[in-house]
């Protein structure tokens, strides 16, 4: 049975690695639902967050293939229950006479959204949350006329203690050990 998995990958910060990692999904015909890369809490180490919908077995196998790539330090995979995740959505609404600003405010309040900026004749509304939540707001804003909409990739942190720093220490010790041999 397929479900949503969040794959977190720690890598060296190297050109082309993103390409190498995504092609592992392409080769297996796995669609990437969302992908984010950023710095991690460790100096010089990058963090990819990839969301896919797959069976557990195929997910585990692709994670092992990712981990095997030179310059990938470690890959983890989590179910939704194991992580706290978020996405940001921005909505552009045109302000004209037909827009009832008090009912627009009511919709924003109800959905825990706020005005990010008012630019000329437009309002940029921001909401953070899971995909379902930003989607519900999208539906609610439709009657006001949405001029633009964008949703970011998912960012996630696991609910448990990170084992990566221990792993990193081990990797560094092990590579020193090899060097000294």
């Amino acid at each position: 049975m397929k479900k949503i998995f969040t794959i977190v990958i720690f890598t060296e910060n190297k050109i082309g690695l993103l390409n190498r990692v995504t092609s592992l999904f392409t080769q297996r015909h796995i669609n990437i639902e969302s992908l984010t890369t950023s710095e991690s809490e460790y100096d010089g180490i990058h963090r990819f967050t990839v969301v896919i919908e797959e069976t557990e077995e195929r997910t585990f196998k692709v994670v092992r293939q990712i981990e095997k790539q030179v310059e990938v330090l470690k890959a983890f995979c989590f179910t939704d229950e194991e992580t706290v995740s978020s996405e940001i959505a921005l909505y552009k609404i045109k302000l004209d006479d037909s827009v009832d600003s008090s009912s627009l405010q009511a919709v924003m309040d109800k959905h825990d959204a706020h005005v990010k900026e008012e630019v000329g004749k437009f309002l940029i509304i921001e909401k953070t949350g899971l995909k379902q939540e930003t989607h519900v707001l999208f539906e609610a804003l439709k009657p006001f006329g949405i001029q633009g909409f964008v949703r970011s990739g998912r960012v996630s942190l696991s609910k448990t203690i990170s084992t990566f720093s221990k792993h990193l220490q081990e990797l560094e010790a092990h590579s020193k050990e090899i060097i000294s041999q």
Binding site: T11, E12, V70, E71, V72, L73, L168, L171, E172, H174, S175, K176, I178, I179
Partner: peptide, 12 residues
């Protein structure tokens, strides 16, 4: 080159 941290060719 004698090794670097993001490549572990010989697992223990």
């Amino acid at each position: 080159c004698q090794g670097f941290r993001s490549y572990n060719p010989s697992p223990r």
